[in-house]
Design a protein around this nucleic acid. Structure first.
Lengths: 189, 189
DNA sequence: ACCTGAACACCGTTCAAGT
DNA sequence: ACCTGAACACCGTTCAAGT
């Protein structure tokens, strides 16, 4: 006889993110997450396939927190807004964020974010055939920077320096989007 | 009575890297590494402080594999050589490489590499006061790119595409080193 | 359909004991 | 000084049993 579910996948992911934030990614265990939702570890297997699926769910959650920029803004403004939003998500969830670099962008949420970036790059003047490649360049830098920050690679610098660093680098990277060429800029001179 | 050591820290790190390469970072356990050098897990604690120290040792090993560029080359050529070398190290040790983004650059080897980059940037024409910041920009991109490749974030693209991507991005990033300004390039026009 | 207890094959680390 | 066995407090996951 069917029995009403006591817990849901959403509740499980809430608990997982909370554990990751409060005690680090290493503390994310099936047993600990289960305890947090008030259930035994084995019960989780009715809602997530295995621990890997649980971690994929964490990535979904992170991407869901990104604030998609207002369509009225310029392409460059939308790109900048997304980048800021990603750094903020990293700051809120430092340990979980490292998962972004360890898992392929295959989820629906990840693909949606990528489409937003594509559109913004086109509006910013990037030639169509360079859009995907430029997206990879920009996202690699932004995710790499955010991961470095929260991972401790920039531990010697406080937040103000990192903020200034990021904005400086961002403007150097984004300031010439409309001048991007298939061949390097220097090769044309 | 003192007893000659059966194993050394170097042997332990050799075994750790081998396990990481063959079976992944998740398979790097004190017990498994110990078994590989022919000893019990507890014996490792006489040569490494704990598992974290073991992982720090892995990072040392990775950095030790970097081919430092010949001093005779130009600043830009030396930077390019280092970047290539880093991508190759990542390809050789895909799982272990992700540790580079999760641990601060505090070891002697890491600081040495940074100094090489500083010198190359100065020779490439970067103004002195922008050198550290530019190093963070470049290393973030290169490490982020290499980590994305081996971590599977670019899994949809094969090696030839990734190679072309990297060289294209690299030339766009490095081609204007001597034109870097404290304020964004666009703000000066 | 959902949840559970018991079990299996693992972990990192401490400690007392051996040489 | 170095290595070990036993032990402690954990893991992820399977399986049979309960409702």
């Amino acid at each position: 006889m069917p029995r009403p579910a006591l817990i849901s996948r959403e509740q499980i992911l809430d608990a997982t993110l909370a554990v990751a934030d409060e005690e680090g990614l290493a503390a994310v265990t099936m047993r600990r997450v289960a305890a947090r939702v008030g259930v035994t570890a084995m019960s989780l297997y009715h809602h997530v396939r295995d621990k890997d699926d649980l971690l994929d769910g964490l990535v979904e959650r992170l991407l869901a927190e990104l604030v998609l920029p207002e369509p009225g803004l310029s392409g460059e403004e939308r790109l900048h807004g997304l980048a800021i939003s990603l750094r903020q998500a990293a700051a809120r969830h430092p340990d979980a964020f490292s998962l972004l670099l360890r898992r392929p962008v295959a989820t629906e949420a990840a693909l949606a974010v990528r489409e937003v970036v594509y559109a913004a790059l086109r509006d910013a003047g990037v030639p169509d055939d360079l859009v995907p490649r430029t997206e990879r360049l920009i996202s690699t830098f932004v995710i790499g920077f955010a991961a470095s920050e929260v991972g401790g690679r920039f531990a010697a610098h406080d937040e103000a320096v990192r903020d200034a660093d990021f904005e400086w680098a961002w403007r150097h990277l984004s300031g010439r989007l409309s001048a991007l060429t298939p061949e390097p800029a220097g090769a044309q001179a």
